[in-house]
Computed example of a mutant assay.
Amino acid sequence: MNLRFYIDPETDLLHIYEQGVNEVEVEDILRKPGEDSLGREGTRVAIGQTIDGRYLKTVYVPEP
């Protein structure tokens, strides 16, 4: 799975870091979401549990 992450232009860091989330956790949720629904403006919202047992909501934009 190829993932691209939003980089905060003010910090030059991945936005997920500001939320206390790492890349592996996002991939866990996107690989096996418990729920995946339509979001706003072309986004989708995946909710699930990471391998470590943490529950997360991930907003993403699928590529065509």
Rank of each mutant, 00 (worst) to 15 (best):
L14P: 04
P64Y: 00
Y6M: 05
M1D: 03
D52S: 13
I29M: 09
L56W: 06
N22Q: 01
G48Q: 10
T11P: 03
R40S: 08
G53V: 02
E27L: 14
P64H: 09
D12G: 05
Y55S: 05
I47P: 01
I51T: 12
Y17D: 13
T11A: 01
V45S: 01
P62R: 00
V61F: 05
Y6C: 03
E41T: 15
P62D: 07
D52Q: 12
T43M: 08
E41W: 11
D52G: 07
K32D: 15
Q49T: 10
D28C: 02
G48H: 04
G39E: 10
E18Y: 08
I7D: 03
F5Y: 11
A46S: 08
E35F: 05
T50K: 12
G39C: 06
P33C: 10
N22G: 11
V61S: 14
G20A: 13
I7C: 06
G42E: 06
V59R: 03
E23G: 07
E25V: 01
D36E: 11
P9E: 07
V61C: 09
I16T: 10
E25R: 04
L30E: 11
G39T: 01
E35H: 06
L38I: 14
Y60F: 08
H15F: 07
R31Q: 12
P62W: 00
T58S: 09
N22Y: 11
D36L: 09
M1R: 06
V61M: 14
R4E: 14
E25N: 07
L38V: 15
G20I: 11
Y6A: 10
L3H: 05
V61E: 15
Y55H: 04
R4P: 02
R4K: 14
K57Y: 05
K32L: 13
G34T: 12
I51G: 06
I7F: 00
V45K: 00
Y60Q: 01
G42F: 02
T11E: 05
A46N: 07
E23N: 06
L13Q: 09
T43K: 10
N2Y: 09
Y17P: 02
V26H: 00
D28G: 02
D8C: 09
R44M: 11
L14S: 11
D36W: 00
P9L: 04
E18R: 06
R4L: 13
G34S: 15
G39P: 00
P9W: 01
L13N: 09
V21M: 06
E25G: 00
E25M: 03
G20S: 14
A46D: 10
G39N: 03
A46F: 04
T43F: 09
L14N: 07
L38E: 15
M1Y: 13
Y6G: 04
D8R: 02
T43Y: 05
D36K: 03
I51S: 15
Y17T: 15
I47Y: 02
Y60A: 03
E41Q: 15
R44I: 08
E25I: 01
A46R: 03
K32E: 15
D12M: 08
E10T: 03
V24P: 09
E41F: 14
A46P: 01
I16K: 02
E63Q: 09
F5N: 02
P64W: 07
I16Q: 02
I7H: 02
D8N: 03
